[in-house]
């Protein structure tokens, strides 16, 4: 019998995750700026306040730090809050509560208190929005022990990582990307409530090169794999899904098979996720296991420009990923 499925976009799958949580788990509530407005968060939370009430879907004053701390406090007192930051850039005003409070609560009190709180930071970039409406900074947060960081790339994960993050007893930063909201898929009707614990997933099998990314970068890699197939290059794509704690076994095993690695990341290069991927692979593989030097496709190390032609050059694209792979395999080199 065919499994029951839902046809959703990434944005509506996020909404489906919220609706599931609010319906099934009375201890869940949502707090953040813009939650009673139709436009702050795309189509990802439409009319949740009407469906579940404004006591549990709370729009707030312009106080990122206090609202994030309040979510943590409610979590410590037995609730499962999700605090929504419609842009990562503004979420930075709340870093103390995310990094220095929530992430450390379990460790510094010897697990005497769990902090089951989700911080949702939305990457909302492009469209000539410029330097302060464009950041992702997921590598910063993934640097922090005790803070789980998830970056859904697929429609199913948009829902399931939100659901599983909220049901997880640890603090989780959930980063979704507006550039993925129109992505569509048929997904199982029942959420995978353990998605956060399942680690990376091979979303395209291949033999010539391993492409690794998270969030939108993973989607770029998938699209690049399609184009590379037309060139006769078989690319394997690993979607990390969770970037802290970073589980690298799947990636290392893949590179061991393909001998080539291209790390794709929608953030800056220095001390970034792409560098971490390369380092972890190189450290764990024996010398000579790779047939080409690893490569990174990342943001240019500069704040996002606004002017259209500059912006067009700034962000990673499918073309840049394809070019990196072509360089990695070597022009004119016959592939096995």
């Amino acid at each position: 019998m065919k499994e029951e499925t839902l046809s959703l976009s990434y944005g509506t799958a996020v909404r489906e995750g919220f609706a599931y949580l609010l319906r099934e788990h009375p201890e869940v509530f949502v707090i953040g700026q813009g939650l009673w407005s139709p436009w702050y968060v795309g189509n990802s939370m439409t009319e949740l306040d009407r469906e579940f009430g404004r006591e549990r879907v709370i729009d707030t004053p312009v106080s990122e730090l206090a609202c994030t701390g309040a979510a943590l406090g409610a979590a410590l007192a037995g609730r499962r809050p999700i605090v929504v930051h419609p842009r990562v850039d503004f979420m930075l005003l709340a870093v103390d509560q995310i990094v220095t409070q929530a992430a450390k609560w379990s460790s510094m009190f010897g697990r005497a208190g769990a902090a089951p709180v989700v911080f949702r930071g939305i990457v909302n970039r492009g469209g000539e929005q410029g330097a302060q409406h464009s950041q992702s900074l997921h590598s910063w947060f993934a640097h922090v022990p005790g803070l789980r960081v998830v970056m859904p790339a697929s429609v199913a994960d948009a829902r399931d990582l939100l659901v599983s993050a909220t049901l997880c007893d640890d603090p989780v930063l959930y980063i979704d990307d507006r550039w993925l909201y129109e992505r569509e898929a048929d997904i199982p009707a029942i959420p995978d409530v353990d998605a956060i614990h399942r680690g990376p997933r091979i979303v395209r099998a291949g033999t010539d090169v391993t492409l690794v990314g998270a969030g939108y970068a993973s989607y770029l890699a998938e699209q690049a794999a399609d184009e590379l197939a037309a060139l006769g290059i078989s690319a394997e794509v690993v979607d990390l899904r969770t970037i802290n704690p970073l589980e690298m076994d799947v990636v290392v095993a893949s590179v061991e098979r393909t001998g080539r690695l291209v790390a794709v990341d929608g953030d800056w290069t220095v001390c970034g996720l792409a560098g971490e991927i390369v380092a972890a692979v190189v450290e764990r593989l024996p010398l000579g296991a790779m047939v080409a030097k690893p490569r990174r496709v990342t943001l240019q190390d500069a704040p996002a420009p606004t002017s259209r032609p500059l912006e067009a050059r700034y962000y990673p694209t499918v073309e840049k990923v394809v070019a990196a792979v072509r360089a990695s395999v070597g022009l004119g080199v016959a592939l096995a």
Binding site: C67, T68, L72, G73, Q97
Partner: peptide
Amino acid sequence: ATIPIATGAALAARLD
């Protein structure tokens, strides 16, 4: 740091 946290615990008390 615990000023907003206590505020959130009060919110939890009200929701409860």
